[in-house]
Design a protein around this nucleic acid. Structure first.
Lengths: 184, 184
DNA sequence: TAGATATGGTACAATAGTGTTTCATTATTT
DNA sequence: AAATAATGAAACACTATTGTACCATATCTA
């Protein structure tokens, strides 16, 4: 029994349009998402019972996608791991951004809240690990590092998206700025 | 003829509550702002005819405030200017943030749109100037620099606001990260 | 103190967004 | 080709939000 192709097509379109629409306009309504995904508003409600459910669904999708993209990095550490994370995440940092803008409404849902806090813990570990390998200055608080990392990631993506930088340059500038800054 | 104190008090409260409320929740409604500012909803409408007018009013206030704070820097250049700008702007970067989240709806208002583009031009100049004095690597595109600057500014403010860093540390980390990065 | 005026509350109309139901149409699977 | 299932459109009730009008009260200026 094959899965109906209309369903997979609709779901794909909804998730994709949902991410980009919500990232550029967090207060977008169900009509906006329906329009952007080229799907009827009724169909949207058939797939997600409510706006809240839609946001939760997109969030879980984003967690999965990021997990999958990052899976090959399990054996890396320190600076190399941070660089590789930049490289893999920058092209899909809209997912990252969507999740980051979520802590507000996420209190509702236990699963999302838990994943968010796990993820926060992972980012802190990423930084502490690079401190341990002596590739990041240990004087810098980890909370700064993890926020700095997040912000660079999103800045790169956003300049990539607006076609002000190409992917290669965006990745290079992210890594370079993170470790060496922009001074002479 | 003295200005009625109730008016100045209401306006101050509205602007202040408006900035912090909109920054933490861009889709906040007029009731939210009224509540946060401790002013009746009717009074809020007496000061600003509409939600749009309120946002525009806050924006113009923010432009003014930033202009004033930055005025003493007119004779500085290069790295020194960038450092001083961090120092002066970080404590009020919520204003900066409010304006940054504005380009979406700003298309409506010509004055706001113009100020936004002027301001963007100034930031680019700030970077090019430091390139000219050889304190920033000229290889780095100015569009990256100005976005990098903005996001460091906001990151510092946000960690300051959440009391995860004190003001001194936030400023120091901003400047250090901008010029030297976080590597060893 | 007296006059003027800003305020807060209630009530109200208009609008926009949410979520549901029904039905004819279209696409997919078998 | 036939049965099945997903879709889009329209109509609907419901809720939240916007913006206005009025009035009694509190506060300011002169």
């Amino acid at each position: 029994m094959k899965r109906d192709q209309r369903i997979v097509q609709s779901e794909r379109a909804i998730i994709e349009a949902g991410i980009s629409t919500f990232v550029s306009n967090p207060s977008a309504g169900m009509s906006d998402i329906a329009l952007a995904s080229g799907v009827g508003r009724t169909t949207l409600y058939r797939h997600y019972d409510s706006r809240e459910a839609l946001i939760r669904g997109i969030a879980l999708h984003c967690f999965d996608e990021i997990d999958q993209v990052l899976r090959p990095l399990y054996d890396k550490t320190g600076r190399e791991l941070i660089e590789a994370t930049f490289r893999l995440l920058i092209p899909i940092a809209d997912r990252y951004r969507f999740l980051n803008g979520l802590w507000q409404e996420a209190g509702d849902n236990a699963l999302v809240a838990q994943k968010l806090s796990e993820w926060n813990r992972d980012t802190l570990w990423l930084m502490d690990n690079a401190k341990a390998t002596n590739e990041i200055d240990a004087d810098i608080p980890s909370v700064w590092l993890s926020n700095f990392f997040d912000m660079i990631l999103y800045t790169s993506w956003s300049l990539l998206e607006s076609e002000e930088l190409n992917q290669e340059d965006a990745i290079h500038l992210a890594i370079r700025s993170f470790f060496k800054g922009c001074g002479k």
